[in-house]
Amino acid sequence: MTQITFKDSPITLLGEQVTEGTTAPDFSVLANDLSVRTLADFEGKKKLINVVPSLDTGVCDQQTRRFNEEASGIDNAVVITISADLPFAQKRWCAAHGLDNVVTLSDHKDLAFGTAYGVVMEELRLLARSVFVLDTDNKVVYTEVVSEGTNHPDYDKALDALKSI
C-alpha cells in the first residue's frame, strides 16, 4: 500500500495504483443528476481526470478551475473532476461559481473509482489529490498522486501530457 500525508499526518491509500503505460480501469460513479457514469461515457476523448478530496476547499477549488480553464482549448479533451463529495454538493459548487460545463462526478456511493485507481485515503474516506491523463484509447500517459494532500499537483506536467496526445 502507498502512503502519503494529509496535513502532515500519515495516510494509507487503498486500492491498486494505476501506472503509466497501462490501460485505465473502468469505474462507476454518480453524475450530479444521480445517473451512473463510467469511463466508457468519455470514449474517444483525451481525458484529464482531476481527483480532489473536496470541491469545498481552497486548493481543490483552484485545482479544478485551473485544469478546466487551461484544458478548454485542447482539441478533443475533457476534464473529469472526481471527488467523494455528494453529487448535490458538486452541483451546488458548480452553480455557485458559474461553471456550467465542468464535469464533476461523485465517488461517494462506493468509492469504486478511488479503489480502482488506488487513491482512497483509508483514514478519511476521501480521495487523495491526484491527476491521471488518458489517451483516446484509455491508455494511461501520466499519473501523479500528490505526496502531501494539501499541496497542488504539477499542473504543467499534467497539461503537457494532455497536449502531447
Rank of each mutant, 00 (worst) to 15 (best):
I74L: 00
K139V: 13
D100A: 15
R65N: 12
A71W: 05
A31I: 02
S9G: 02
V29N: 11
V59K: 02
T143Q: 04
S54V: 03
N32T: 15
V120T: 09
G58E: 13
V119T: 05
E70P: 03
A112Y: 06
L134K: 11
S83W: 06
A84I: 03
S130N: 07
V146I: 09
D75M: 00
T136F: 01
V140E: 08
F6M: 01
V18R: 12
F27H: 12
L30I: 10
D135P: 07
S72L: 08
A158F: 04
F6H: 09
L34C: 04
R65E: 09
N50A: 00
I4C: 00
S83F: 06
H97F: 14
T115A: 11
D61W: 07
K7H: 10
L134W: 13
E122A: 14
A158V: 09
V78T: 15
T143Y: 10
I74A: 00
G58N: 10
S106L: 10
R92D: 11
L39R: 14
F113H: 10
N151Q: 13
H97R: 15
D135W: 02
I4D: 11
D85K: 02
K157L: 13
T22D: 15
P25I: 11
N32R: 12
I165R: 01
T143G: 04
I165Q: 15
S130A: 15
